[in-house]
């Protein structure tokens, strides 16, 4: 980061932290904060767990886990067979994948015929079949 950006951020971060309530609380601010919170007791098992950890000094350190927010979830079941045949290694024979590949070719040809784009060679007008992928 260049010096100017660094200086800018250091100043801005302090102002922002105050605005967002992240500056260290004074005793008076902490008291106001405390008074504004709902008064509820923790469940007995949680109280016991805290007391055990605190008095033994053996605190559980939580290991952060990935969130799902960054990778929007989608149903991959519908495409996993296609991914399988696209990603097989060169020279790798697999009867199931070959059958699927043939089925996909056949479906693609039928689609072409249904759309009135019938092709006698079945290769969409190409002289040669598609080359091996790299």
């Amino acid at each position: 980061m260049n010096h100017e950006t660094d200086k800018f951020w250091q100043k801005a971060a302090k102002d922002l932290a105050r605005r967002l309530g992240h500056a260290p609380l004074t005793p008076e601010e902490a008291q106001r904060e405390f008074d504004s919170l709902p008064d509820a007791q923790l469940p007995d098992n949680e109280i016991d767990s805290i007391i055990d950890q605190v008095t033994s000094g053996e605190l559980t350190v939580w290991t952060p886990t990935p969130t799902e927010d960054d990778a929007p979830g989608f149903d991959c079941e519908a495409i996993d067979e296609d991914v399988l045949q696209l990603n097989r290694n060169e020279g790798q024979a697999d009867a199931e994948t070959d059958a699927l590949l043939n089925e996909l070719r056949r479906t693609a040809l039928e689609d072409g015929q249904a759309n009135g784009r019938e092709d006698a060679t079945g290769m969409g007008g190409d002289a040669e079949p598609p080359a091996k992928g790299g």
Binding site: E33, P38, D39, A40, L42, I47
Partner: peptide
């Protein structure tokens, strides 16, 4: 813990829920 645990937990959730995970 009995007297203040609930409010301290509420404070942590209020201020830090957006940046800390449940276990943290």
């Amino acid at each position: 813990v009995k007297r203040y645990g609930g409010r301290l937990k509420a404070f942590l959730y209020k201020r830090f829920r957006s940046v800390l995970q449940e276990g943290e």
